[in-house]
């Protein structure tokens, strides 16, 4: 951690767990420098490649937890890198960065084997949250049907939610929202991530409709209990966690 860290209010809260080894493939040197700086300050180990061929070479020879790849690169485009990796049997998670934001482009990015797609300009928080979510997804534990955060339990087979032994009734959409939050417990989850994964909305409503949905869920799972579990990280997103 550098000395700049205390300036930037509270720590972002993504990186308390083990540092990741990341590869950034991005030809815009300025953008790459800031990205690397930000990620290193979060405690990650970051390598950088400035063109497609170099990026593919590094991705094939190195051991990475995650690859962030720009879509338009000199020598070899980002999607081709991911395709080559997948063809080689590597399932290292890959997040595609792109200035192309159309629906078709996103679909193409995911179809090529990308695990997530982020359109430029993006917020750094958004990137961090998504990287975090991706490492969990490729993590060791098989998807469980019994989720638990502190005294909150969710059984995905019976759709039963209990907190401290008390039954809580949730609507189907609320269940999906809670499931997503529980699967990413202790991590920052952004509005956009929720819109995309819980509602499958790939556009940004001007009104913060997610906030009202979160409030409604919070009133059901937190009201009347001692410690709040569902936290709002102001201006950035939400986190379901036993810790504050």
């Amino acid at each position: 951690m550098t000395t700049q860290q205390p300036l930037a209010r509270t720590p972002l809260g993504h990186a308390q767990r083990r540092p990741m080894h990341l590869l950034i493939i991005e030809d815009d040197q300025e953008a790459a420098n800031w990205l690397i700086k930000g990620l290193r300050e979060q405690g990650h180990v970051v390598d950088h490649a400035a063109d497609g061929d170099d990026g593919l070479h590094q991705a094939l020879t190195g051991q990475y937890d995650l690859i962030v790849v720009d879509r338009m690169l000199p020598k070899r485009d980002g999607l081709s890198i991911i395709r080559m990796l997948r063809a080689d049997g590597r399932n290292v998670p890959a997040l595609v960065l792109s200035a192309l934001g159309e629906v078709d482009d996103r679909v193409a990015g995911l179809r090529a084997g990308g695990d997530d797609y982020l359109v430029k300009p993006y917020a750094f928080d958004e990137l961090l949250a998504r990287l975090d979510a991706l490492t969990r997804r490729s993590g060791e534990a098989p998807p469980s049907t019994q989720l638990r955060v502190a005294d909150l339990e969710l059984d995905l087979n019976t759709h039963k939610v209990r907190r401290a032994g008390q039954d809580i009734r949730l609507q189907p959409k609320e269940l999906r929202l809670l499931e997503y939050l529980m699967r990413h417990q202790d991590k920052l989850v952004t509005r956009t991530m929720l819109l995309e994964h819980v509602w499958d909305f790939h556009f940004d409503p001007q009104t913060n409709v997610v906030d009202t949905q979160i409030s409604r869920l919070r009133s059901k799972i937190d009201r009347g209990f001692d410690a709040p579990l569902l936290h709002t990280v102001r201006g950035r997103g939400y986190r379901l966690s036993a810790h504050d």
């Binding site: 959409k173 409709v209 009202t212």
Partner: peptide
């Protein structure tokens, strides 16, 4: 329907 449900609370607020 889905959008309506998402927006309902915003209208109420």
């Amino acid at each position: 329907q889905e959008l309506g449900e998402v927006y309902e609370d915003a209208f109420t607020d």
